[in-house]
Design a protein around this nucleic acid. Sequence first.
DNA 1: CGTCTATTTGAATGTACTCAAAAGCGGTGG
DNA 2: CCACCGCTTTTGAGTACATTCAAATAGACG
Lengths: 195, 195
Amino acid sequence: MESIDQLIKHITKYVELSKEDKEKIKSSFTPRTLRKRELLIQQGVACVHENYIVQGTLRAFYVDDKGDEHTLQFAVDDWWMSDLESFFYQTAANIYAEALEPTQVFQINKPDLDKLYHEVPMFERFFRILHQRAYIAQNKRILNAIRMNGMERYLQFIENYPAFHQKIPQKYIASYLGITPVFLSQIRKSLATKN
Amino acid sequence: MESIDQLIKHITKYVELSKEDKEKIKSSFTPRTLRKRELLIQQGVACVHENYIVQGTLRAFYVDDKGDEHTLQFAVDDWWMSDLESFFYQTAANIYAEALEPTQVFQINKPDLDKLYHEVPMFERFFRILHQRAYIAQNKRILNAIRMNGMERYLQFIENYPAFHQKIPQKYIASYLGITPVFLSQIRKSLATKN
DNA sequence: CGTCTATTTGAATGTACTCAAAAGCGGTGG
DNA sequence: CCACCGCTTTTGAGTACATTCAAATAGACG
């Protein structure tokens, strides 16, 4: 299978597409390959693409004044990655996005995306659904962040994302959970001795 | 001005609508008035409407096993309120939404919304944009939650939402920030003595 | 094998919570 | 209009959660 077909397959999980729709979508995206540790998005630089991940793993993070990193999102195959605010308003990005392993994406820029919204209403519906689902997921994360302590959030994380847990360095998980790597290590220790 | 026109005005801030579009939209919504403390959404009951707030204030909150409330969102004039997950998948709601003052909303149910998406593509675009913006806002809140301590989050809150700060009881602000009302009181005290 | 980075461990400190009680405030009824 | 009731906010003390700093150990990679 051509990898672009994976994108079409992904979209048709949510909306129906005609043959012409599919062709228009296919021709609007361009492939890009990232090496491990390569940056897809950079703080301070406009994020000009919305990215669909064919294969690989990305991590989006914010770097504060003290130089500390705060992980906003991990993303794997079939997920999307951009700085939506930067992309939407064409402003400088607030985050970095880095490949944690060799990663292949398909990219679309804003003019082409707007054109596609116009020409393929089903594609706009797809993005409406996508953003809706993303918003629902974000809400759950906020709820977890405000009501659970570090250990509870960690247990929740490994339950929700067992796959991530395997291959993502612990310090990034800590920065996603909003705790220090040292504290995460302590949590793991106390979980290990408890059993 | 008819209050339903306020909704149209709101939508046309983001997308253009024809006369027919406007009529179709207007006829799809029905008004509802809430008394102070009345519930718009109830945990365990399907959320069958998406709600546009004409005038008033709502608070969305989750109640955990211990009976503690965790505020997910405050919403005022021109905002939208629903349990999106419950609405979208037609499942039991996870949250409550309560009027903090007399509040007037316009409601649309899912069949009518889907119909409207189909008949008025601009309306679907509007919701795509709305969800996109909501997602961007949520991202910022997550970032604040994982990188700031209680005092910093409080200062951020009163900076972002000075109006809310005036009329919302402190204990609800605490539950929004993810801290206890007791601790928020201490934060306020130490801010007051600092100046 | 050596180097660089990630993880663990320990101790001291700061941040935030719980419990209990007092003070403040708003609404209601007499 | 005042007195009372119920709820919110404040205060204080003790405890738990989480961070910082420093150093040791373990892993990854050339």
